[in-house]
Simulated scan of single mutants.
Amino acid sequence: MKVPPAVADVRRALRQGVPDVGSVPVLVACSGGADSLALAAAAVAVCAEVHAVVVDHGLQDGSGEVAERARAQLEGLGAAAVVRAVVVGNGPDGPEGEARRARYAALREASDGLGGAPVLLGHTLDDQAETVLLGLGRGSGARSLAGMRTWDPPWCRPLLGVRRTTTRQACAEAGLEPWEDPHNDDPHYTRVRLRHEVLPLLEEVLAGGVAPALARTAAQLADDDAALTALAEDVRRAAEDDDGGLATPVVGKEPAAVRRRVLRAWLTAQGARGWDEAQLRAVDGLIARWRGQGPPSLPGGLEVIRTRGRLIVRSARPGT
């Protein structure tokens, strides 16, 4: 029996995107929407063992019923599906960011329970284009503009080259009824306005092809970032001593793009979190523009000092 074209496109993307497809168990994160539902159907067709998790954030009336409907569809496809209810906190990133945090924690736990199985996420080319535009609008660097990675263990996004129209068509061809999340049309969310207002306007002004062009930009920058990150890791290993200090002469020989990647990785390894770009540049100044300046402060009551040609992270002294 001939496979319908959109279904075939999704399956092809999955085969190309999942390491060892057909021989390892996979875990599909499914909301019941068209993207993740089409992905789940493709996984059942081409993967050896398919598990699925429907995360119920509890943020909408009737969310439990929506989650159960998605679980039933997944079971009907042949996946071993469960619903995971999560508690969304009141953190600094707002409901959307906190929901994402809770969702990814639940998915990682489920992956660990399957021996680190790849977690398939239904992000599409359109999602990638929106991510790049968000990064541009926020003045983010190349690492952010590189967008989402296809493979970032345990996360796997095999549909980053597939359009939303294709996943919707795949569901129609397979006789699946996806859930329409009302949040996807709520203009209170920046991403929704990008989707329904900004991208259509850009398509009109630039005569089409904007979303694929943005996705290509992300792919090119991802390649560049991977090369620079690998180089930076080699430099960090050469510069970091057994006590966690960083040798400034070793790092100082590198161009800014490598130097700051070294510092990001080193600060993270030293337990620093949540710094902004200005703080990172202040730390970089201890290497590239050393004038005997005072120690830059970091979140969490930390500071970075330069002493005897080394950078050290320590608890900030009172009054600094």
Rank of each mutant, 00 (worst) to 15 (best):
R138M: 12
L14K: 10
G209M: 02
V28S: 10
L263K: 13
H123K: 08
W290P: 00
Q16F: 09
A129G: 01
T248M: 04
A67N: 04
V205G: 02
L74E: 02
V21D: 14
V162L: 09
G64E: 06
G116E: 00
V210K: 10
A81M: 07
P295D: 04
S36D: 14
R308K: 15
Q128A: 03
P187V: 07
V18N: 08
A269N: 04
V205Y: 05
A215Y: 10
R191G: 09
R289A: 06
Y189I: 05
P158Q: 13
R157T: 04
V10S: 08
V205R: 06
A172S: 11
Q270V: 00
Q169H: 15
W179H: 10
A230D: 03
G141P: 06
C47G: 02
V262F: 09
W179N: 09
R260L: 04
A43I: 03
A316Y: 09
V50G: 02
L280H: 07
E130V: 07
A102R: 00
P158W: 05
A247F: 04
A85Y: 04
V50D: 01
G17E: 04
A70L: 11
S111V: 03
D35W: 10
D223H: 12
A239Y: 13
P154G: 07
P299C: 01
D9W: 12
T167N: 08
A105M: 05
V283L: 01
G115N: 07
R314T: 06
C47V: 01
G89H: 08
L159R: 10
L145G: 01
D241E: 08
R264P: 03
A265K: 09
H196G: 11
R163V: 01
P153R: 13
M148C: 10
H183T: 15
A38E: 12
V88L: 00
A102M: 03
Q169W: 07
R317T: 11
G301Q: 01
R108W: 02
R71E: 05
D9I: 14
V24Q: 08
E303D: 09
A6D: 13
R100D: 01
D284M: 06
T166Y: 07
R84I: 13
V55T: 04
S297C: 06
N90A: 12
V55N: 05
V53H: 07
R237L: 15
T320Y: 12
A226N: 04
A40I: 12
L231R: 11
A215N: 00
D223N: 12
V55S: 06
R310W: 14
E180W: 15
P200M: 09
V24N: 09
